[in-house]
Computed example of a mutant assay.
Amino acid sequence: MNQDVFPQGTHIGRTALRVTNLGEVTDFYRDVVGLTVLEGSDTRSVLGVADTPLLVLDGDPTAPDRHQSSAGLYHTAFRVPSRAALGDALSRIRDNWQLGGASDHWVSEALYLTDPNGNGVEIYRDFPREEWPHNDDGSVRIGTEPLDLDAVDAAATGATRAPPETDIGHIHLEVSSLDAFRDFYIDTLGFEVQTAAPAASFVSASGYHHHIGANTWHRRTDPIAGRGLSWFEIVVPDGDALAAVRSRIEDRGSQVTETDDGLVVADPDAIEVRIRADPSTR
């Protein structure tokens, strides 16, 4: 096994958002995205599918707006297992919200929208992996073409909840520097580059089209601040993989904190990244 990169099975775990209107945002992720409220209080909601938490919402009515110069979240991408599930998501969006965009990315079909606090949301389904186009160097090609919404709509079954196979397939960040992003997420943590686009970069583990995207389209210059993304999680398959990434972080001189669940490190834009081993392998 190459100790310098994330191994097979690495994926994105939970995402946490700081929101000013907890009830309204919770309702959005329940009724539009289709998640189930697994835990709830006056200050926090945890939503997911089946018994798996995917999204943590921390309510903070006094949280300042994210400044237009601050790095942070571009979107959280919820991956559903089929076109039928994507069709059901489209129906929920049309019934309860507003669709912001839709694209065929050659590797996936994606719907885009924005939550009540201005956080970007993607709901998508992957095409079969053997159908993904690749460059000569083996990296995955990601494009953008109009999505056939009529075909997606025709596949809908009427389900009001996302299926239990739903997960967070990737997270997309707005960063201040793509060079610093690549230095941290590739050279330090161990992701591998898949696709570069104008002012954007997409990295992954084990040949996935991307687990993390980053862009500088809006010319963010400052560290993350205000409401929006609080932290996100990278899940590695076992304790050996966790030890390997800790060694890489320390070798690169980055500060890492050990917790009961795993590791916590800040990226170049002060975005908190939590890394833990899959609990099923402990």
Rank of each mutant, 00 (worst) to 15 (best):
W97E: 05
N215G: 02
A277M: 10
R44L: 13
N119R: 06
D51H: 15
L113W: 03
V236Y: 08
V245S: 03
S206E: 05
G59D: 06
T62H: 11
A159N: 14
I171E: 05
A63W: 12
L73I: 14
A199Q: 14
V25G: 01
T216M: 14
I142Q: 12
W132H: 12
H210R: 12
A180V: 06
D65K: 15
T221V: 13
S230M: 06
N215H: 11
A200W: 11
S176N: 07
A243I: 04
A277G: 08
V19H: 01
N2I: 13
R282T: 12
A225D: 14
A154G: 00
D238C: 09
D60N: 15
D104L: 05
H75T: 14
D104I: 07
L47V: 13
D179K: 06
L55T: 04
A159Q: 15
T216S: 10
T166E: 00
G101H: 02
A110I: 04
G72A: 14
V273K: 13
D278N: 15
A63N: 11
P7F: 06
P7T: 10
D60A: 14
L99K: 04
L17G: 04
T195R: 01
E130Y: 04
T10C: 00
R182A: 10
A156V: 13
R92K: 03
A50E: 13
V140C: 09
R79I: 09
S247V: 10
Q8D: 07
V32P: 01
W231R: 07
W106K: 12
W97T: 06
I249L: 12
D115Y: 01
I275L: 01
A241Y: 07
H105Q: 09
T43I: 13
H218K: 14
A180C: 00
D31G: 04
F232N: 08
G120D: 06
D115C: 06
V152Q: 04
L147S: 12
D251K: 07
D88G: 01
G158I: 00
P7V: 08
V33F: 04
S82Q: 09
R44Q: 13
A214W: 02
G262E: 13
L86Q: 02
A102W: 00
R44A: 11
D261S: 15
H67L: 10
T221W: 03
F127N: 13
I93V: 14
G118K: 08
D183T: 07
P198R: 13
P81N: 00
E233V: 04
N21K: 11
L57I: 11
S204L: 05
T259M: 00
T76C: 15
G138F: 05
D31M: 12
R276Y: 02
V49N: 04
V175A: 00
A243R: 14
A71Q: 08
E272T: 07
N135V: 12
Y74K: 09
D136H: 08
P237V: 07
D238T: 01
I142H: 10
P237C: 08
E109N: 04
A180T: 04
T26K: 07
P146N: 08
E145T: 15
Y29H: 14
S103H: 11
P268K: 10
R79T: 14
A110D: 07
A197I: 01
L263M: 04
G253C: 10
V235N: 01
D269I: 02
I142N: 08
A197P: 00
R83D: 03
G228V: 03
L263K: 10
D42N: 15
A243G: 09
F78C: 03
A200I: 11
A270H: 08
T15W: 07
G158Q: 03
